[in-house]
């Protein structure tokens, strides 16, 4: 903070008060992060101390009222749904961004961008609602019960598509034109220029978009709660229902008490930690790349 004081030229009292107020309010941000971690850890402690660590993976199943806390099927459900949507969305999102930037004529590009922006803004509960009343009945026609991992993957993909598309597009804009012209001047075809020259340069931005999107897919609650069926089991196929960590919290928080409630905070803490890890890895990638190019 002493450094801060040196940066301020003016000595007026009003300014000093202003800086004081500003620093206090920005400390709120830092405090908020600390508090979120602190309280989740505090609330998780009862469950963490009551259970052996291995119990979270080896209990017969998840029946908190009977003292069984196996999170394994729920974790598998989360990974299957989030992973599936990331695998589907990444190529489509990158292709959409390439289309937007290199293939679409201007009016089409403007129109398509509006659609992507609208998709980004639609509330997740509306995606979930649409999935439940429109998409699930369609899936029932193919294979009951309809509420399934597949439904979750489809709706979640629609929801996270804009994230990767917009991230890729931003990265494409930043690719220097000189190298693009260089590629064309060597007689490379358009698709070679895109895949061999533009995409490698846009890679850090795209990777960071994928991380962002993975975080969103893991943390999304409403869509998976509404369309995935919420059955606690390791899904055998994508047509089986499954439950995710987030849906588990949303479903059981209303009636959970004591250790059960605390074990829900443990799942919350797991979510928080895994997503913070993604954020940190992403930062590391960015920095690493930055160091390599300079």
């Amino acid at each position: 903070m002493t450094l801060l004081r040196h940066n301020i030229l003016s000595k007026s009292v009003r300014d000093q008060v202003l800086v004081f107020v500003l620093i206090i309010s920005s400390l709120t941000t830092i405090a908020l992060v600390c508090f979120i971690f602190l309280f989740l850890i505090l609330e998780s402690l009862p469950a963490l101390s009551a259970n052996e660590f291995s119990q979270w993976l080896s209990d017969p199943s998840w029946h908190p009222t009977e003292g069984q806390y196996n999170l394994y099927p729920i974790m598998i459900g989360t990974l299957a749904i989030a992973g599936g949507s990331v695998i589907i969305t990444t190529p489509i999102g990158i292709a959409s961004a390439i289309f937007l930037h290199y293939y679409a004529p201007t009016p089409v590009a403007i129109f398509f961008r509006r659609i992507i922006e609208l998709l980004a803004g639609i509330p997740s509960v509306i995606y979930g609602f649409w999935g439940l009343v429109v998409l699930v009945p369609v899936i029932i026609q193919i294979a009951p019960p309809g509420q399934s991992v597949l439904a979750g993957i489809i709706v979640l993909s629609m929801m996270t598509l804009p994230i990767i598309t917009l991230a890729t597009e931003t990265a494409l804009i930043c690719v220097p034109h000189s190298t693009i012209y260089g590629g064309y001047a060597l007689g490379l075809s358009k698709i070679s220029v895109i895949t061999k020259i533009i995409l490698p340069q846009a890679k850090p931005g795209i990777v960071s978009g994928v991380f962002l999107q993975t975080g969103r897919a893991i943390g999304e609650t409403m869509v998976v709660l509404m369309v995935c069926g919420n059955v606690i089991q390791i899904p055998d196929s994508i047509l089986d229902p499954a439950r995710t960590l987030t849906a588990n919290i949303a479903l059981e928080m209303a009636y959970a008490t004591d250790i059960h409630r605390s074990s829900l905070f443990v799942t919350g803490l797991m979510l928080l930690l895994s997503i913070s890890c993604l954020t940190v890895i992403n930062e590391f990638f960015k920095k690493n790349h930055h160091a390599r190019t300079l």
């Binding site: 908020l32 609650t221 928080l272 913070s276 954020t279």
Partner: peptide, 29 residues
């Protein structure tokens, strides 16, 4: 400056926290 970096990192983390975790946090606090 380190203070600005700390704030930026905090913001990155805050922006990525799933909303259900905010729900849990709001519920306790």
């Amino acid at each position: 400056h380190f203070f600005s970096i700390i704030i930026k990192r905090s913001l990155d983390i805050l922006a990525s926290i799933p909303s259900i975790v905010y729900g849990l946090f709001g519920n306790i606090v």
